[in-house]
Structure formats: structure tokens, C-alpha cells
Design a protein around this nucleic acid. Structure first.
Lengths: 155, 155
DNA sequence: TGATTAGTGGGGAAAAGTGGGGGAAAGTGG
DNA sequence: CCACTTTCCCCCACTTTTCCCCACTAATCA
């Protein structure tokens, strides 16, 4: 589900505030769970490269497409290796538990600065998990407005 | 319905004062409901980028066209990511309930400064939901006049 | 002035999110 | 190979949110 003509459809939208409990679990928003393909969905949890780090969650199928692109590249390339060490080296595969929650491994939690309150943000093909202050900084209206100016010619 | 020769027709016009109840619900004006395509219409509720933020409501089909444009762009681009985090990250998908109301999620309500009284404003292909004072500021006659000057060459 | 239609408000069932107890499974050290 | 600890994940209980249904008011129109 979710495929259409070999390309993924736009799926994840909106933001949701959830809480990471003492055991490191967070519930995935119900809307997102549906888009992931229900109960036994597989996901990949990785670190974002942006200055304000967040975590990025990919449906398994979307992630696999990325991996295929990487595999097609010349493997001796040092820059690619550095990139993969980061992207793949930290990637955690997991599934949802019966209550629709995932477990965020401590290193990832720390990287993204996640404490009790976390924001889920949908960005079409995948979604992100943010610390509140970082998200605010990353989506501050000044920043967004200047970006919008630049992109507005495109559509 | 709604389409004509691949381009959307102008649909939403006028302003209406409605009230947001304690549960965060507002009735969509009947005129707008018809243009949305009746009872089981799907909508997208998003944030505007303007300094005085309001909410923007798109018929599902109009919004999807936007998303398709975004998906066609290179996804690694940082500026696009920032843009999507704002546009898509605030987008809430929803449907009308049996009384023709929508539920405005708390984060959006807060961002747009909506309390009990809200204004609906039609702007052709979509419509907006405003806090009264903000709307007044955004449509002050001085402001409108200066904008009109700038645009006067175009039509 | 009754009838129809739009908007408003609230009760209540169902669904979604939260937190903790405890057993299974995996990892660690003798 | 066997304790012992740690991690994970199931189940259950509780709270909050969402969304159905129904009933009331206001406005419109013949």
C-alpha cells in the first residue's frame, strides 16, 4: 500500500506533540501509522544531517529505494563512504509494538536532544521527530519567509 | 466537479463570521461547503506564511496539485526541506463532520490566534480562517491601496 | 406565521495516547 | 554452561481527544 506507478505517494502531513516515556518509547501518531501500512509496519530511524539535528523516520519501502540509489554509485568514493557511515551507520530498524509505539535507541535520542516532549512532523514521503526548541528554530517565520521568497518562482 | 479544462475554477467568495466552540469545532459556511463538493469533502488545513498568520483551507484536489510539484523537486535540498517542514508540517488533513464542521487541531488554533469568533474569507481557489484583529490589520485600506498600485500593471 | 435551512452547543461512545507491572529474550561474566 | 543483569515488548488500566447523534436557536422564505 502506498505505491502508485512505482513512485511513492505523498503521505505524511501535519505535526503532533507526543511524549517519550521513561523507557524511551513514543507512540507514532495514528495518521502516520496508517500511512506506514498498519500494524506490522517496518521502519528505519536515522539521524538528519541538518544543523539542528532531528530524527528521520522512513517507511521501509522508501528507505530501500534510497539504498538502491547508493548501491548504484561507485563504492570506492571516499565522500560516499563518509556519507554512508553517517546515514546507514546510525540507522536503526524497528517495528511498532502492539500499542503503535517505537523504541528510540539512546544514542539517537541524545543526538536529537529528545526529552519528554517530542514533535512529529510530516514531510510527505517521510516524517521527522523533533525537540521542540530545535523545531521552532528550524521553522521560524523569518527563515521560512526567506526560503519561500526564493522558491516562490517555482510554483 | 470543480475542474474545468485542467484548471480549477474560482470558487470561494465572501466573508462569514462563525464561532469556534469549546471543543475546537467550526462550521464551514454553507456556500463553501457546496464548493468543496458536499458532505464527504476532504480538506487540507494549513498555515499561511504571512506575518499575521491565518489558516488556509484547500480542497483536497487543489492541495494535491501543490504536493505533486514539490515531490518533483530534488529532495536533498535544504531550502526545500525547510519549506516542506512549514507547509506540509503544519498541514492537517480532515473531513467535515455530519454537521458540516471541521476540527481545528490545537497547534493550528494557537498559531493562528483563533479564539471564539473567527472569520472565513474566500479567495477564489481556497479560503482562509482568521482572527478578527489580524484580518483587520491585513486588509487595512492603506495596505490594500499600496499593493494595488504595485499590481496595477498586471491586469 | 409555519416550514425549512443554517449555525451552535452538549452528552456520550469510541478511539488514540500514556504510563507501569512483569515476563521473555538477549547480553555479560564467571 | 549457568547465574545475573539489562533490554525489550506484551498486557492492562487510565486519561484525553475525537466524532457521532440529537436538540435548540436564528434566520429566511413563501
Amino acid at each position: 500500500m502506498g505505491k502508485s506507478g512505482g513512485k511513492w505517494m505523498a503521505f505524511f502531513r501535519g505535526r503532533f506533540l507526543h511524549s517519550l516515556d521513561a523507557k524511551g518509547r513514543v507512540a507514532i501518531p495514528q495518521r502516520f501509522r496508517e500511512s506506514l501500512g498498519g500494524e506490522e509496519a517496518e521502519i528505519r530511524l536515522v539521524m538528519s544531517v541538518d544543523p539542528e539535528g532531528c530524527l528521520v523516520v522512513y517507511p521501509e519501502a522508501v528507505w530501500r529505494e534510497l539504498e538502491q540509489k547508493w548501491e548504484a554509485l561507485p563504492q570506492m568514493n571516499d565522500e560516499l563512504k563518509t556519507y554512508l557511515r553517517f546515514m546507514v551507520g546510525w540507522a536503526s530498524d524497528g517495528a511498532l509494538d502492539r500499542q503503535g509505539r517505537i523504541l528510540v535507541p539512546p544514542p539517537l535520542r541524545e543526538y536529537a536532544g529528545l526529552d519528554h516532549e517530542v514533535w512529529f512532523v510530516g514531510v510527505l514521503q517521510n516524517f521527522e521527530i523533533w525537540n521542540g526548541e530545535r523545531l521552532e528554530k528550524a521553522t521560524g517565520s523569518d527563515r521560512v519567509r526567506s526560503v519561500t521568497q526564493k522558491l516562490s518562482g517555482l510554483f
